[in-house]
Amino acid sequence: MKYPAVFSMAAILLFLFLWEGACRYYQVQDFILPVPSRILTVAITRSALLAPHAGVTALEVLVGILISLAVAVPLAILMFAHPSVEKALSPFLIASQAVPVFAIAPLLVVWLGYGMASKVLMAAVIIFFPITVNLLQGFKSCDREYRVLFKLMGADFWQSLRLLLWPWALPHFFAGLKVGVAVATIGAVIGEWVGAQKGLGFLMIQFNARLQTDLVFAAILWLSLMGIILWFIVGWLENKIVRWKFENKIPEKDRN
């Protein structure tokens, strides 16, 4: 294990230790702030209750990601191929970011109902922006010399896209996706808060109303775990797909 990991683990343990200690010393009641050990215990012992709802939330997030990808990737390509389309659409893209998506959550529930659809759309809308913008930026970052080389080889747009621009943009795409999956969970949960019959967000509202604070925290713990797992899956995919970026390289100075 590398040293930075040791330090961050130590910091987390210290924080949890102080939390536990402070709660016990000041005898804070469980419904105000439960101790970490209790949260962990509840998160494990009540997993039969939590797991099905976590599954629903995870499904919402995953479907949201897939829908987002299905729209964002073609759109980024279209915007790159036709700068006029980019100019026309960029106000909408920026607006989709400027309007807090959470503010439209109640509307989505009105339009799409209490089922999964409104939550899926929440997650999708949130991920959409970082993916589109990063992918477009990735395409644009391709050096002019490489594009000239492809032009001289007689490559058409799709050949350039497949052989040059897409692999070139992949690291940017994954950067966007990592940001996206981290916030997508938040989108789905907020959708569930507003109105739902299932999901971790729905559970949290129920527990909160009954002052079952330890269960609220347990749900949060599950959510965080989901976010972290998603993040690592994307990181793993990135490592698999963008291999040339991560494998050991000969140092620049020893190249000649």
Binding site: E145, V148, L149, R243, W244
Partner: peptide
Amino acid sequence: AYMQQKDLLLPW
């Protein structure tokens, strides 16, 4: 055919 200072090889 055109060859320049940079090798312009694609890393992937």
